[in-house]
Simulated assay, not measured.
Amino acid sequence: MYKLLIVDDEPQILEGMKRTLDWAEYGFHQVETSETKQDAIAKSVEFMPDIAIFDVCIGTDLGYEIIHKLNELRLPTKYIIMSGYSEFEYAQAAIRCGVKDYLLKPVDRSKLQKVIEKIIVEDLNGTLDGIHRKDMNTDPILGIPYEELSKLTNRILLMVKAEYAQNITLKSVAEPDGHPIPDAPPSYTGVTYTQGNWFILKTRGGESPEPLNKWEEFRASNERAVKSSTFGFTPDLSMMPIQMQNIKMVWQKYYPSLMTGSVDVDTELPKFNEELKQAGLDEVRAEVQKQLDAWRASNKR
């Protein structure tokens, strides 16, 4: 029913992407691949895919520039960009081309699944009836989420799967004694302010970093706490995937150095704020405020 085109200059990645999802189950009965700009344009015109997934770099050519040329031909194709680079400029160019999403390599299976399902329902007017959803985000043998694995490990799994055309898991590439290959530790995410954090900020410092009556102060602090009027509100930003990806990339670029004090804050912070705006932060804030106003109205807050 649907047609898919995958464009990447690495044959192993192409084969791995063909097996990342059960495309036939989603109704894709024709899956084509291309390794060059010329072949990608020719196949796009020839069989007009419903969805095309482009790597950001195809040899010396750029995927979004190819998409721009295809847009001039007014093809009905919906495009997805994948890239091994967390570069804000690439994501900006992708937005200008009207791509549906920007995925970082190695492509997260669950994210790809969500993007494909979203396009099928919202753009192709299809349904997901009868589709057996698998947990694409967890290794089926060890039960370890793929997002907790390093990029290198995920890339190895993708390429090994392509090479042997089978569902290779971490257990398959474990050491002889059965222990999984060591992986990088989970990344540090940052501080979430809670009532306890506020207590620490208010009581620590001065000549007595650890006040002798801290537990009394802690209980008094809790008694003074007021329930937030937004408690229970969670914004839905699924309709803004590219802006969220852009913001994430800018955050990852500046946040670690700012948190560790390894840069001049007065110099870097203005750059951080400006790039967040360019990434679409104001659009996201406006959408969150819109949803918050509607939530408050419906909950009489």
Score class of each variant (00 low, 15 high):
Met1Val: 09
Tyr2Val: 04
Leu4Val: 07
Leu5Tyr: 02
Ile6Asn: 00
Asp9Pro: 01
Ile13Thr: 06
Leu14Phe: 01
Lys18Ser: 09
Thr20Lys: 14
Leu21Ala: 02
Leu21Gln: 06
Glu25Trp: 06
Glu25His: 07
His29Asn: 15
Gln30Arg: 15
Glu35Arg: 13
Asp39Trp: 06
Ile51Phe: 00
Ile51Pro: 01
Ala52Phe: 03
Ile53Pro: 02
Cys57Asp: 10
Gly63Ile: 03
Arg74Ala: 15
Tyr79Gly: 03
Ser83Asn: 03
Gly84Glu: 03
Tyr85Met: 13
Phe88Asp: 06
Tyr102Leu: 04
Leu104Phe: 04
Gln113Lys: 10
Lys114Arg: 12
Ile120His: 00
Ile120Pro: 02
Asp123Met: 08
Asp123Ile: 03
Asn125Ser: 13
Leu128Cys: 07
Ile131Ser: 02
Ile131Asn: 06
Ile131Ala: 02
Asp135Leu: 11
Glu147Ser: 14
Lys151Ala: 14
Thr153Ala: 11
Thr153Cys: 13
Leu158Tyr: 02
Met159Gly: 08
Val191Trp: 08
Phe199Asp: 11
Leu201Pro: 01
Arg204Asp: 14
Trp215Cys: 07
Glu217His: 11
Arg219Gln: 15
Ser221Asn: 12
Asn222Glu: 14
Val226Arg: 09
Pro235Trp: 06
Asp236Lys: 05
Gln245Arg: 15
Met259Ala: 15
Asp264Pro: 02
Pro270Trp: 03
Lys271Tyr: 09
Lys277Met: 12
Ala279Cys: 09
Val288His: 06
Lys290Gln: 15
Gln291His: 10
Ser298Tyr: 10
Asn299Val: 04
